[in-house]
Design a binder for these strands. Sequence first.
DNA 1: TTGCTCCTCACGTCACGTGAGGTGGC
DNA 2: TTGCTCCTCACGTCACGTGAGGTGGC
Lengths: 260, 260
Amino acid sequence: VSTLVSIGDFSRMTFLSIKALRHYHEVGLLPPAEIDPDTGYRRYQVEQVPTAQVIRRLRELGMSLDDVRAVIEAPDVRARNAAISAHLRRMEGELEQTRATVKSLRLLLDEPAPAPIAISYRIEEPSVALAIRAEIAHDDMFAWLDEAFAELHVAVAQRTGVDGALFSGELMEDEFGEIVALVPGAGEAGGRVHALELPRVEYAVAVHAGPLEEVDRTYAALGTVVAGRAIGVQGPLRENYLSDDRIEICWPVFQTTPAA
Amino acid sequence: VSTLVSIGDFSRMTFLSIKALRHYHEVGLLPPAEIDPDTGYRRYQVEQVPTAQVIRRLRELGMSLDDVRAVIEAPDVRARNAAISAHLRRMEGELEQTRATVKSLRLLLDEPAPAPIAISYRIEEPSVALAIRAEIAHDDMFAWLDEAFAELHVAVAQRTGVDGALFSGELMEDEFGEIVALVPGAGEAGGRVHALELPRVEYAVAVHAGPLEEVDRTYAALGTVVAGRAIGVQGPLRENYLSDDRIEICWPVFQTTPAA
DNA sequence: TTGCTCCTCACGTCACGTGAGGTGGC
DNA sequence: TTGCTCCTCACGTCACGTGAGGTGGC
């Protein structure tokens, strides 16, 4: 015969606030064992304490209630551990990101004016490429590109240039929008992979060398020049991945060169 | 003569979303250099880009907009670096906490049933102590206790027991409430320090040995016994800090011993 | 009986995101 | 002129916290 305790006692026993316990009840994460039909008083079983302790620790690790629920309701130990490990991996990724951001912040504060970068102009004549397109959130960009290029590399037969990507305005401005991963050349379409005809575009181009966290500074330098000369036109930005730490950034412009 | 750019261009140059930029304008963190009186169009100066880049990095580090503002509006480099360093120290503290929580979670999952703990009963006869009391948030508990004990240790003249603390029910249940730090014995009152007369209380007592992160499990074990015997009474919980890793937890109960 | 516990709304917080509905600029 | 950019509400998100106002239980 198990002991029932009031919400106050359960709170003291689990270090979860009463408000939190009521919230977990409301969302069905940790319903009390019993509810008095007259008074609405919640009664918890002492056997619910370990579950509550797990919930508190997962919440302290910043796991969302939905993910906590997945852990709590996992059918077996394997699934449970997988859910927890996935979260810990995410946290490690964030930690790496944090380290990089701190470094980047120090750099920015120490060196507010960036080294001047070379900007060139280029006319891209119409060309073909193998491409994958999608509407994604800005935060998913890296993961999405990794996967897309993996698929494209399998499909491409005749490469005529380095990997590149097109970013719609909305993707930058709204945190959600169209993205295209492309490999110049020809190959086998199928699945998400399709052939893409790239139109003629004029670009102002800058090369970003160095850590990815700094790439906004190159964008800013390039954008400043384009804005200063009032030559910007609409159309997606393009990045070309020259090497592991060299990215070519292409900003669409018009009439940078006298007509032939 | 500085270049003005539209919110869209500024967004592309800084990797801040348009929604974020409008929000920063609304709260006065990064107002545009100019606003068209007819259309309401925001225009940013390219010289605002570095500030925006700093804001983006600080936000990525999880700094609140209020704290970001403090950094941005810092009167000099010293004040600015102090604000940033304070945030980074907080983050390191959280990282330590995260490590401890992960460890504690693994322990809890590996060993769901805790080792049975010894529970004893005790009657505390009325006594005196030097004490500091306050209403605090649960999260500030450790910092507050550290400071309070430092003050009490200076004031105490005749110690008759180890450091202890009283925790009101609300502090546990509402995340905000009364806390009392106390040193049994006598000494010099003054400032926040005052003499406190402790009434007679009967306690169920358990000793928690080991890491602080696990202390909820001892609370739960103690609470389970108290609830099972239906001997709980209201009144603050008490902790006595026996040594660095031994905490005595005292739960108020009634009539645990036959009357004399 | 008193005061303590617990209840249910309803609204606030933080930093934006998500539309809706509309207008200006090239 | 078209469609693209930008505007302002108003409301949503997430995980609770903060009261208000009221009732049950010892």
